[in-house]
């Protein structure tokens, strides 16, 4: 894909490095001259040093050929304008905006931005999940979000503790891929018995994730899952 990234600082650097590693073609736009030189030197790639909210700058960056435009400046209004100009004036098929103010998420979507990312919302959600579900440490979507990989710690009080995998009766579209016990990973078979303190790597179809977690941790834990 050809991706335009407009923004500043460390976020642009890491986005660019990761996306380039995945063989995407990139054009960066950074307003601050000093940051611009620094990024160009560290990434060894050309960086446009100009205001990405100006039509001529987006045009020079190739907005009319871009498959995706990521607007990740620290200013919500700037990100909105970058995305709107890219999409509605230059016809970019997909735009993603970062917002500092979580109250802008819904509005940006209504104004035609394809994806709106609020760091504050993500962190708040994580904090809430941690508070209610301390045992779940990561949720990773795979295969375009259709598969979830969830790592969770099994308390001794969990319904699954003491049962073998075959006794457990997990939903059809759920699988325990690994159990980590006392620091050692185990690739489990049906006859292995789960214990309190095990860390379980659960792979599920997204629609059966919550059902599978309920099987392992009980109704109370699953009630706190994000819907």
């Amino acid at each position: 894909m050809f991706i335009i990234i407009a923004g500043s600082g460390a976020l642009v650097y890491h986005l660019a490095r990761d996306l380039r590693r995945k063989h995407h073609q990139l054009q960066l736009i950074v307003k601050d001259a000093e940051q611009c030189q620094d990024l160009a030197r560290r990434l060894e790639m050309p960086v446009i040093c100009d205001d990405p909210t100006l039509p001529r700058v987006l045009q020079a960056a190739g907005a009319s050929e871009a498959d995706l435009v990521l607007a990740v400046t620290l200013n919500d209004a700037d990100n909105l304008v970058i995305c709107q100009l890219s999409k509605r004036h230059f016809g970019a098929p997909r735009t993603v905006a970062l917002v500092a103010n979580p109250n802008h998420v819904d509005l940006f979507r209504r104004l035609g931005i394809d994806a709106v990312v609020s760091v504050a919302t993500i962190l708040t959600t994580l904090v809430e999940q941690q508070a209610t579900l301390e045992d779940m440490i990561s949720l990773t979507p795979l295969v375009e979000g259709k598969i979830m990989v969830t790592e969770l710690a099994l308390p001794a009080s969990a319904p699954a503790a003491g049962k073998t995998l075959s006794e457990l009766g997990l939903p059809r579209n759920a699988l325990i891929a690994t159990i980590t016990r006392d620091g050692d990973p185990i690739i489990p078979r049906g006859d292995i018995r789960l214990q309190g303190g095990d860390r379980v790597l659960l792979v599920t179809k997204v629609e059966e994730e919550s059902l599978a977690i309920r099987h392992l941790l009980g109704e109370d834990a699953a009630r706190h899952l994000p819907q």
Partner: peptide, 9 residues
């Protein structure tokens, strides 16, 4: 400019 455009919308 961008603040004005945003608030207007």
């Amino acid at each position: 400019d961008n603040t004005n455009i945003f608030i207007a919308q």
